[in-house]
Write a protein that binds this DNA or RNA. Structure first.
Lengths: 223, 223
DNA sequence: AAAGGTTTCAAACGAACGTTTGAATGCTGA
DNA sequence: TCAGCATTCAAACGTTCGTTTGAAACCTTT
């Protein structure tokens, strides 16, 4: 066998989680694809939950380190001056898009990660919150410094929307095909498209609802 | 009992699907919350899959009818002239946001819907594609007419990104809390924020990768 | 080559799942 | 009032899940 059992299980689990979801993927499917014995999962990882965490940790830790490294590089270059929003977006989302383009497993993993942000399962939420704590703190600080005129709450929402766009850009390939025939094989084009969209949304004029009017501020008769 | 068993099951299922996901929600949890017998699900719906479809169909059909009605109203008003992009965005995303603000079940449902776009399960994908076919066709046509200068493929991607932002705006409330303490109780503010972001992204300048350069068009040394 | 620790394996475990059954109960129209 | 259909109910069905077990196989070290 080329690689050891532990790695083969991680690869098979990652791939199957993307295709069928976490719950619908059984240990029997995983061990079959990994050409390992059923008991191997519990031997090497302890439980299915622990396996899931291991699958995420293997790449997510690295991804967030890359993000922080990219941000740190920009900050060193700026010598204390605020960064340009485009640079911060690049450090956070660009790194992710690039990892999603990596044929060596990164692609599979990012599709999994994208649809896991909104996963309701408790232990996953807790796990993700821990893994993201540092990177979120760093990027929040950088953005607040770069956009001092944007209210912080306003920015957090926009960051949230940007995460949604990223998530769909990466893992919504199937949902995308619902819209019509489309080419999603060119990672450079995807990178350019998403960055352009994100910057556009981030720099959009602020909505004028910062103070709440009477009842319905803009009750358009649309529906 | 106030409502009939069928409706109580639909309500309980909807609520539990949001909290635990489709797979992790068992028929026993549903019937317990609905104060119904376990066999009632199979009696009234036939199977768990059929129940899931019923939960979605109950509100999704209505939502898409509202979207088409809103678009039709704008088009009648415009008398053959292209709509303003803002109007089309309003008709598609505004209606969804408004439904997500509706306390009477719509809120719960939209959170469920948001995280189901990327669901990998086959029968759900097929079902959603059918439910969306008409509304997608109508809105694609309207957008192409309104933005003749934007390449169609480019627009489809932006529409896809916008769906991602909408999805997170509605169902990513938990993921949002990862970013810090934030108020997501004001639907009018959410509406204004998302619309502003979406229009900004939609109208962003086109990326300059429409023709593919040599190898790496912008290989920034970011990471 | 024997010992000791690590990894694999086939088999089985109890628990929980969706579904089915057949009898009991409720409701409606003649 | 009572037949006839619709609904509810407790119980059980067969399956599949994650996990455990104890022996076999493998690999290293002396």
């Amino acid at each position: 066998m080329e690689t050891d059992t532990r790695t083969r299980i991680l690869d098979a689990a990652e791939s199957l989680f993307v295709r069928h979801g976490l719950d619908a993927t059984t240990l029997r499917m995983i061990t079959a694809e990994a050409q390992a014995n059923l008991a191997a999962v519990n031997y090497h990882f302890g439980s299915k939950e622990a396996l899931i965490e291991a699958v995420f940790r293997r790449r997510l830790t690295w991804l967030n380190e890359q993000r922080i490294a990219a941000l740190t590089a920009f900050e060193a270059e700026a010598k204390g001056a605020p960064l340009k929003p485009r640079q911060i977006v690049e450090a956070f989302f660009g790194v992710a898009i690039r990892m999603a383009a990596d044929r060596n497993g990164g692609q599979t993993f990012m599709r999994l990660l994208g649809r896991t942000y909104t996963e309701p399962t408790d232990f996953i939420r807790t796990f993700l919150a821990e893994e993201y704590a540092e990177v979120i703190a760093r990027f929040k600080a950088a953005f607040f410094k770069a956009l001092p005129d944007v209210p912080q709450e306003e920015f957090l929402w926009r960051f949230h929307f940007m995460m949604g766009a990223l998530s769909y850009a990466i893992s919504g390939a199937d949902a995308l095909r619902m819209l019509g025939p489309i080419d999603d094989t060119d990672p450079d084009a995807l990178y350019a498209r998403l960055m352009s969209f994100l910057i556009g949304g981030l720099r959009a004029p602020l909505p004028e609802v910062l103070a709440k009017p009477a009842r319905k501020p803009r009750a358009k008769r649309a529906a």
